[in-house]
Design a protein around this nucleic acid. Structure first.
Lengths: 144, 144
DNA sequence: GTCGTAGTTGCAAATTTTGGCATCTGCGGG
DNA sequence: CCCGCAGATGCCAAAATTTGCAACTACGAC
């Protein structure tokens, strides 16, 4: 199962608990193929346990994001969506502001940037998930 | 005045109007030194014209963002803030997730990334404003 | 296995953000 | 200078997200 919650990454800090709610939220996101909105996560969690509150889902999702276990996708005009960060397949998103097309950007493409930030500013960028906006090739051709 | 609204960048498209509300919102953001939340923008605009609605400020701010005239700053645990994009001083932000320190990242540092995206994916990134998260040098030293 | 405590949750209420729609207005055309 | 209308606004209501707080529970210590 791709959803080993007790594995390496998550909840390894002191004072952080693995509650069933968190497990269910994580599982819902991992088991979905695409990107889920908070509502969709909530729905799926409720199928397992009907009394999990929406606010808990919100809190959990923010927690998991900060833990680097899931990535957040904010496209304007749409609800915020979340996606599992699968090791070995880390990626970011480039969204076309004209047509909405979404391209997956390999994490490796940000290595250079990461190094610059580190050398120049001493800043270690967290490469969990980034959303970049711009224009895809098709729309450039069309408008240009 | 640094707030020439009828200048090059903004509102040059067909069917886009320059309304007093937009002018006031832009002015508020340009004249402030730091980053303003939507509420703060609203307050300042209302000092000039009391009947401007909050929803108009929201819509305007989104519009200006898409026009590339202002940048959006989303730090979790804080309200969304907006900042003027001043030509000649384009920059992005790197935020330390541990201490909250905010570093201004020169736009030039993203040139490389921009080129990679263009060559590899045909995607032209919009370099108006980006917020990167990670850890600053001080917190890295402290934690490990 | 039991205890104690800090971390979490559920619930309700507050706050923030978005959307619908009738009315208004900037601005290109005549 | 006046018209017409797509684009904007204001106001109201709905939806989304956050917060306060008392009750609950995971989990390290004993």
């Amino acid at each position: 199962m791709s959803c080993e919650i007790t594995s390496d990454r998550p909840t390894a800090q002191s004072g952080v608990r693995l509650t069933p709610q968190r497990a269910m939220v994580l599982e819902a996101i991992y088991h979905s193929d695409g990107h889920l909105s908070v509502d969709e996560v909530h729905e799926r969690v409720q199928m397992l346990s009907p009394y999990v509150d929406l606010s808990t889902v919100y809190r959990t999702v923010m927690f998991l994001k900060q833990q680097g276990v899931i990535g957040e996708l904010r496209l304007d005009g749409q609800p915020v969506r979340y996606e599992a960060v699968r090791s070995g397949h880390e990626h970011h998103h480039a969204v076309c502001s004209t047509c909405g097309a979404m391209i997956e950007v390999d994490s490796a493409d940000l290595t250079e940037l990461s190094e610059i930030l580190s050398e120049k500013y001493g800043f270690t960028i967290n490469l969990v998930h980034l959303t970049l906006t711009g224009q895809c090739s098709a729309c450039q051709a069309a408008s240009g």
